[in-house]
């Protein structure tokens, strides 16, 4: 039960990303061309509800299922890190039409070519780890 709950949460995520077509290259293109509300609706609804939930959790100091306080770690402030890193990420997101989550959902969908992108993503992660101290953060 300890581990199966994470698999179930992942299944829920995988199903909803598939069924709302958020794993589709076409939908990502439509989003970056501002030609339909669909992807903005998905992210917007999630953020509005997520903000309310985060606010409620903080306000009432809610605890997790094990009784530990739920903590939110603030992200360290920087501009170059997020702008440069984010831009590099966005270049790839629009090219493959999949961010890391949908990449793996596509595997379940039997789009085997996505393994090339996953291999690339692992190589990219490795390179970042190797040269991170030489990058502006």
């Amino acid at each position: 039960m300890k581990s199966i709950k994470f698999i179930i949460a992942g299944i829920l995520f995988g199903i909803v990303m598939s069924k709302s077509e958020a794993i589709s290259w076409f939908r990502i293109q439509e989003m970056f061309r501002f030609q339909d509300f669909h992807m903005y609706g998905i992210i917007g609804t999630a953020v509005v509800l997520g903000t309310i939930a985060t606010f409620v959790i903080k306000k009432y100091k809610l605890r997790d299922f094990q009784g530990n306080p739920i903590v939110f770690t603030p992200k360290e402030m920087s501009i170059p890190r997020y702008i440069i890193g984010g831009t590099i990420f966005g270049l790839g997101w629009a090219l493959t039409g999949a961010c890391p989550g949908p990449m793996f959902v596509n595997v379940g969908y039997s789009y085997w070519a996505i393994f090339i992108a996953i291999g690339g993503a692992l190589a990219g992660t490795y390179l970042y780890g190797a040269i991170k101290d030489r990058l502006p953060h």
């Binding site: 992210i43 992200k75 360290e76 890190r81 997020y82 440069i84 890193g85 984010g86 831009t87 590099i88 990420f89 966005g90 270049l91 790839g92 997101w93 090219l95 493959t96 999949a98 961010c99 890391p100 989550g101 990449m103 070519a113 996505i114 090339i116 992108a117 996953i118 291999g119 690339g120 993503a121 692992l122 190589a123 990219g124 992660t125 490795y126 390179l127 970042y128 780890g129 991170k132 990058l135």
Partner: peptide, 21 residues
């Protein structure tokens, strides 16, 4: 296309400290 697209996703996500989620 897929390899370099994936590569920049992996590199950029760690550089920026996170992805879409």
């Amino acid at each position: 296309i897929l390899l370099l697209g994936g590569f920049s996703i992996g590199f950029g996500a760690r550089y920026a400290g996170g992805c879409t989620s």
